[in-house]
Simulated scan of single mutants.
Amino acid sequence: MNQPLSYWQTFSIVLMRDLKVAVRNKGDVFNPLIFFVIVITLFPLGIGPEGNTLTRIAPGIIWVAALLSALLSLERLFKNDYSDGSLEQMLLSPQPLFIMVFAKVLAHWILTGIPIILAAPLLALLLQLETNAYGAMLATLALGTPILSLIGAIGVALTVGIKKGGVLLSLLILPLYIPVLIFATGAIEAAALGLPYSGHLAIIAALLVGALTLAPFAIGAALRVSTN
């Protein structure tokens, strides 16, 4: 008699499966990063090379680009599983749904959030971001991009059964991203001015803890509702 899979084995299997599927479909890996690069490089071309202007708006540009890049790749999070029946098998599995959902969200963050974090310092040079703001930028991206994946996955779960639900997804998710955007850009701006920004990071960290705790259960409930 086969032993049931442990929670960790279930988590690892789903995570590795999603990563392998993404590696086969190179667009899932490169499209969000390319979009992030294009958006940021267009601003210096459109606004001009004026250093003071670019420096002032750099935090907002970086974070808006990161937010839109994450949103660009979210729609495919459950769509393929819904189309090929894998999502139905997940819902019928004896394993806790929130574990499998969390593994899929983590795979999304690895494929989108980590490349954005790695590319951001190089692209910040184009925006002439203050040198002392780089640490705050990386910290906010490290804490904030998982929140984008977790909250975004709730919207994807609610719209997974809707054809061409991308517009509805944007309307649902973008307002929920605003607190992260406000505190992240505030932290970078404070760092650029030489002011303390630990309070901003603490709020973003609290949002991350709340999202990690509640979002997997919300995503699972949304999937059950939207697929019935």
Results as ranks from 00 to 15, higher is better:
Pro115Trp: 13
Ala222Asp: 02
Leu223Cys: 02
Tyr82Glu: 14
Gly144Ala: 14
Thr131Met: 03
Asp28Val: 12
Gly27Lys: 11
Leu45Thr: 13
Ser226His: 01
Ala139Phe: 04
Thr112Arg: 07
Tyr177Phe: 15
Met137Ala: 12
Leu77Gln: 01
Leu201Glu: 03
Gly48Ser: 15
Gly152Val: 03
Ala190His: 05
Leu223Tyr: 00
Gly113Glu: 03
Leu91Gln: 14
Val39Asp: 07
Leu126Val: 07
Asn80Trp: 14
Val39Trp: 08
Ser12Lys: 09
Ala157Leu: 04
Phe35Leu: 14
Arg76Val: 03
Lys26Met: 14
Leu172Phe: 08
Ile203Tyr: 07
Ile110Leu: 13
His200Phe: 10
Ala184Lys: 03
Phe78Met: 11
Arg17Tyr: 03
Ile40Leu: 11
Ala221Thr: 11
Ser149Ala: 10
Lys79Tyr: 13
Glu50Phe: 13
Leu127Pro: 00
Gly27Asp: 10
Thr227Asp: 12
Ala218Glu: 07
Arg17Pro: 00
Leu15Asn: 02
Gly113Gln: 01
Val21Asp: 15
Asn31Val: 12
Trp63Glu: 01
Lys104Leu: 14
Gln128Ile: 04
Lys164Gly: 08
Gly113Asn: 04
Leu72Gly: 03
Arg56Ile: 05
Ala190Gly: 05
Ser170Ile: 08
Thr145Pro: 00
Ala221His: 09
Leu150Thr: 06
Arg56Glu: 05
Leu42Gln: 12
Ile117Ala: 04
Ile13Lys: 01
Leu201Lys: 04
His108Arg: 08
Ser86Asp: 08
Pro96Thr: 06
Val101Arg: 03
Ser12Val: 11
Val23Cys: 09
Val39Gln: 12
Leu92Tyr: 15
Gln95Ser: 08
Ala211Gln: 00
Leu148Ala: 13
Leu171Gly: 02
Ala136Trp: 00
Leu169Glu: 02
Leu193Ser: 12
Leu77Tyr: 01
Asn31Pro: 05
His200Leu: 10
Val156Met: 07
Ser12Ile: 07
Thr145Gly: 02
Gly152Met: 00
Thr10Pro: 05
Leu127His: 00
Ile116Asp: 00
Leu223Thr: 00
Leu45Asp: 05
Leu195Gln: 13
Pro146Leu: 06
Ile47Gln: 09
Gly161Ser: 09
Ile38His: 09
Ala103Cys: 11
Ile219Tyr: 05
Gln3Pro: 11
Ile204Lys: 01
Lys163Val: 15
Val64Ile: 15
Lys79Pro: 12
Val23Asn: 14
Val180Lys: 02
Leu207Ser: 07
Leu212Cys: 15
Leu87Asn: 01
His108Thr: 04
Ile151Val: 10
Ile178Phe: 11
Ile178Pro: 01
Phe30Glu: 06
Thr140Lys: 04
Ala202Trp: 07
Asn52Thr: 09
Val64Asn: 06
Ser12Cys: 08
Ile99Trp: 04
Val23Arg: 13
Thr10Phe: 10
Gly113Met: 03
Thr213Ile: 14
